[in-house]
Simulated scan of single mutants.
Amino acid sequence: MSAPTDPGPARRGLQKFTIAACLLLLLAVADACWLAIGDARDLFRVVAGGAARASGDLIVPADRQAVSLHERALAEGPALLERYVHAELDTPDLDVRFVELQGRLWRAEIHASAGAPAGEHRLTVRFGNQPATEAPTYTVRIFPDLAALRADQPSLLLRLFGLQPVWVVLGALALALAGGALVYRQAGQDLERLLASGVGPIYRLARRAHGWEVVFGLGRVHGVRPGDCMTILDPGRRAVGFLTVEEVETETATATVSLEANIGPGHFVARPERPGNPGKEDA
C-alpha cells in the first residue's frame, strides 16, 4: 500500500483543472464518435448566401482512356480541374467550384445564392464523359441561417458552439497533459517540503505474521539511522504512536509495528527531534 503526500491548495486546484480537462476530453471523443456515426458522408450543409466545403470519392472507369484522363487531371492541377470533373445540380441557387484533386478524392466549395430557399437538392459529380447514372450523387441541404444549420448537426459541440469535436479533442488533450505534468511537478515539490520538515509518507504496508512491515520515505540522506525511534502521524499529522527503525536505505527506511498499531496507508512517519514535529514527550 502507498500514500501520496497531502496536497496543498495549489495542487488541489491543479488536480481539479486536470480532471475537468479529462472530462472534457471524454465528452469531445464521444461527440466525435457520434458525429462520425450519425452524419452522412454524402450530405453537405450550406447557409443561404454562404459557402461550405465538400469532398467525395471520384469514380474513375477502369478503361485505359479514363485512366489516362485521370492522370492528366492530376498533372494539370486545380486550375484546370473543372475540365475533367463536372458538377450537376438540380437548382440554379447552388454553384460548385472544385479546388483540389488528390488521387480519387475531390474537394470543392459549394456556394448558395442569398435568396436560395431552404431545402434539399441533388448534386452529381461526374468524371470526364462518365454517364450520370454511374456517377456518385450527394445531397446539399440549404438553411436560412447559421442557427438553423447548427440545429441540424448531430454533434453537440457543433450545435452549441460551432466547434468541430476534433479540435476540442486536441485542445482538451493538451490541457489534460499540461495539467497532469503540473500536478506531478507540484507533488514533487510538496514531497520535498514534507521531507525537509522531517516528515515522510508511508510508501508500503505489508502484513506479516509478526506485525506490519512499514516502508516510509525517510532514509540516510535525512539523517535516519537503525534504532531511531520515529513518531507515527495520522493523516491529520497528529501523533498516534511510535516505531523503531530496523533497516535504512538512501531515501527510505523499514520498521515493524504490531498488527494492533494505529497505522494505515494515509499515515506518516516523523523524526520527533525535528522542530515543529511532535516529540516523544508530546505523545
Rank of each mutant, 00 (worst) to 15 (best):
G236I: 00
N129K: 14
A73C: 08
I202G: 01
V257L: 15
A75S: 13
R271P: 00
L69Q: 15
P136F: 04
G38I: 09
A20F: 11
Q186V: 11
A40P: 13
R97P: 00
A62D: 15
L205T: 02
P275H: 04
R220A: 13
R107A: 04
I110V: 14
G119C: 12
N277Q: 10
D39K: 11
R11I: 07
F44E: 08
A10W: 11
H210M: 09
V99Y: 00
V169P: 00
R11N: 13
V214M: 03
P275M: 04
A209D: 01
V215W: 14
A108S: 01
L158T: 01
T231N: 01
V140I: 15
A172H: 07
G276M: 10
V140K: 07
E192P: 05
T256F: 15
V140S: 08
D95S: 04
E273K: 00
P131D: 15
T133S: 07
F242D: 04
E192M: 06
V257W: 09
A32K: 06
V67W: 14
H86V: 08
R238K: 01
A112F: 10
A270K: 04
H70L: 14
A40G: 14
G266Q: 13
G188H: 15
R159A: 00
E247Q: 12
T256A: 11
G128P: 11
P165V: 03
L160N: 06
L89Q: 04
L69M: 15
N277T: 09
E247C: 07
D31V: 06
A30P: 00
D6N: 10
G115H: 12
I202N: 01
A261R: 08
A66M: 07
A132T: 03
G128H: 10
R64T: 15
Q65M: 08
A3E: 14
L173H: 01
Q164G: 05
L177R: 06
A261H: 05
R193H: 07
V166S: 01
P9D: 06
R12E: 14
V29N: 01
V183I: 09
L27P: 00
H267Q: 08
F44S: 09
G77V: 14
R122K: 10
A87V: 00
V199I: 15
R225N: 08
L101S: 03
A28C: 02
H210A: 14
A178S: 11
V96T: 04
R237L: 00
A32D: 03
A181D: 12
E120W: 12
A172C: 07
Y84N: 06
V248G: 03
L233Y: 06
A32V: 00
D282K: 02
A51H: 05
P9I: 09
V224Q: 05
L259N: 06
